[in-house]
């Protein structure tokens, strides 16, 4: 099951070798699991603490960043023809592939450790997965933390790969009923750095009107482009992990960080459940509308 040499700490192995099951599921989710024939084996988790700085974010150089071979880059030229040390001669959006890659490393390490714990228990899948990532006590350390409940499907052989899902309980039961099998959780982060052009900076500073006669309010193209692009990148990362399967129950969130005036990072994070259809959809009868008496 686990071809890679185990990197689980001793304490984890000791815990997992004990008899009784543990489950992070609520009682109703636990009951639903039993109903589905999923036997809870144990709460499994995985961590990865990463050194985290915004290094490589060297900020603004003398000339625009050449860009990595694969990432998104967009350049903005100053239309004013002014040469002055106070005037931005150029602006640029570029994808910070190294941030995206480190994030993926952290998430994947924690994820594979969690699967390794599940493998130790002889689990077939992990349900009710919870993920979090955040700064740890020290500056410059980010911890990725994943946990879930490992389960075994009663009267079924072990699958080639341990499957996983954020779902549990009735929601998971309905996924099966609707004709889907959970494959894995998928998650990605896109990071776009914005070094403002002169126009962007004036507009973001609220002084854009100085540079154009009539436009009192205008769309800030460079920011809009970075925002829409980072969302597109996050979605393309996830799509690349689907291999023809579907993404269910996704959530997409955005985060903007300002390092200095005219220097921003725009992040988009997308995560959800990769699921696969195993039978044709059998539409259920229209649900009964109810009104609660209270």
């Amino acid at each position: 099951m686990t071809p890679t040499p185990s990197d689980l700490p001793e304490a984890a192995k000791r815990r997992l070798s004990q008899g009784a099951f543990t489950s992070g599921l609520s009682v109703s989710d636990f009951a639903a699991c039993l109903e589905m024939g999923l036997e809870p084996l144990g709460l499994v988790q995985g961590f990865c603490a990463m050194q985290w700085t915004t290094f490589g974010s060297f900020g603004r150089g003398v000339t625009p960043f050449a860009g990595s071979s694969s990432g998104y880059v967009e350049n903005y030229q100053c239309p004013h023809g002014m040469i002055s040390s106070e005037h931005r001669m150029w602006g640029q959006n570029y994808e910070q592939t190294w941030i995206e890659n480190s994030w993926r490393d952290g998430f994947n390490s924690a994820y594979s450790r969690m699967l390794e714990e599940a493998g130790t228990l002889g689990a077939h899948g992990v349900v009710g997965l919870i993920d979090s990532e955040g700064p740890l006590s020290d500056v410059g350390v980010v911890e990725f933390h994943l946990s879930g409940t490992a389960v075994r499907v009663l009267d079924a052989p072990a699958p080639h790969h341990v499957w996983s899902t954020y779902l549990a309980g009735q929601r998971l039961a309905k996924i099966f009923e609707a004709g889907y099998a959970p494959v894995s959780v998928v998650s990605s982060v896109a990071s776009v750095r914005v070094l403002s052009s002169c126009i962007t900076e004036y507009l973001m500073g609220g002084t854009g009107a100085m540079w154009s006669v009539n436009a009192e309010t205008t769309e800030i193209e460079q920011i809009v482009s970075a925002q829409n692009e980072s969302r597109a990148i996050a979605r393309s990362f996830v799509r690349a992990q689907l291999h023809g399967d579907a993404l269910h129950g996704a959530s997409m969130t955005g985060l903007t960080r300002e390092f200095a005036q005219g220097d921003l990072e725009i992040q988009s994070r997308l995560s959800g459940n990769r699921i696969r259809r195993f039978k044709d959809f059998d539409p259920l009868t229209a649900p009964r509308p109810t009104v609660r008496l209270s």
Binding site: M36, H243, H248, R277, F278
Partner: peptide
């Protein structure tokens, strides 16, 4: 339900059938 779960999980080991690459943030 139990038989459906077994069938679903067993299907994971076989070639994937096209799920249409649907992506959604809806709940089930």
């Amino acid at each position: 339900l139990r038989a459906e779960v077994r069938r679903a999980v067993a299907s994971l080991d076989h070639e994937s059938r096209d799920s249409g690459s649907m992506t959604s943030d809806l709940s089930i």
